[in-house]
Design a protein around this nucleic acid. Structure first.
Length: 294
DNA sequence: ATGAGGACCTGCTCGC
DNA sequence: TGCGAGCAGGTCCTCA
């Protein structure tokens, strides 16, 4: 699912339904879903059996469940990448297997399962040691290189601005780089740029401090608002742990709105092919810079 | 060392 | 009705 607000919706659900519960068994239904777990699916299942989930955490679009064995503080975590189409669902053990069920966690209390369902299999699960990540926080090993997200305590806006302006690329590419700032994807990058009145191909090295502040504020505002609304979803692929969709798509200003009126100036929203995907922007509010960095 | 491009998947919609 | 093309909210690896 996912960008930061949608992953946070899932994290909250996972915390509510899974924290404090002990895993009985893990069934791996598709090898690709555990490809990041280097030791393989059987090892992942063995590591999960009998351990207790102590909490659900998130950085950017990465979600993990802290695992404790024998009452010890968590030293490992079950990392969950939702990828493009991953879902974490709470389901009764008796519910039939979903078409794209990849991994099923059953609990010792015989209560609801936690199921990882993923149509496109870009997402996946892995059990990893917790290590020191950016900002001194304990994170799963493969999250160590991911930058803090802008809704996270300790996010340093000044350091982000300086790093952004050291880049030699377009501002949208930079916003999508999870090692610079995490949690922003294609929807919220476009929305943040619209709010900041910046074109996606604007070279990062030409950004002024005030423009950096605007785009960061735009990202924080749009993602916070989306979170309030339960996340953005256009279809049943993006849902919370109970299978329910958020309704923030009604509040989007540019994403998916080609040809519709800009809420600020009334111009027709345009769509450009960019980075093998689409970028939506207002031709009048976000004019193309003389020097563009696609 | 950075930055850009392609690879990795399934399924849906559109046009012919 | 069938079929290919194009598209979808992400990340990673490789190559320049």
């Amino acid at each position: 699912m996912p960008e930061l607000p949608e992953v946070e919706v899932v994290r909250r659900g996972a915390a509510t339904f899974a924290a404090g519960r002990t895993i009985a068994t893990a069934e791996v239904h598709h090898p690709r879903a555990v490809r990041r777990h280097v030791a393989g699916g059987a090892d992942l299942a063995a590591r999960l059996a009998g351990v207790t989930i102590t909490g659900a955490e998130r950085r950017g679009k990465f979600l993990w469940l802290a695992l404790s064995a024998d009452g010890e503080p968590a030293a490992e975590a079950l990392l969950v990448h939702l990828g493009m189409s991953g879902q974490l669902l709470v389901q009764p053990p008796t519910a039939p297997a979903e078409k794209h069920l990849r991994v099923r966690l059953a609990f010792a209390d015989s209560g609801p399962d936690l199921r990882f369902v993923d149509q496109r299999t870009f997402g996946g699960l892995s059990v990893e040691p917790l290590v020191a990540g950016h900002g001194g926080r304990q994170v799963p090993q493969s999250v160590a290189h991911i930058a803090l997200d802008p809704l996270e305590a300790g996010f340093d806006a000044d350091a982000f601005g300086a790093a952004l302006r050291r880049r030699r690329t377009g501002v949208k590419r930079a916003l999508l780089d999870q090692t610079l700032i995490s949690g922003i994807g294609n929807i919220y990058a476009d929305e943040a740029l619209w709010r900041a009145k910046l074109h996606f191909a604007r070279p990062t090295e030409t950004l002024r401090a005030a423009e950096v502040e605007r785009v960061l504020a735009g990202a924080v505002e749009v993602m916070s608002a989306a979170l309030e609304a339960g996340g953005t979803s256009f279809d049943s692929l993006y849902v919370n742990v109970n299978g329910e969709s958020g309704y923030f798509d009604r509040s989007l200003h540019v994403y998916g709105r080609e040809g519709l009126e800009c809420a600020r100036c009334g111009s027709a929203i345009r769509r450009d092919a960019f980075m093998n995907r689409s970028s939506f922007s207002c031709p009048r509010c976000q004019p193309r810079p003389r020097r563009a960095h696609w």
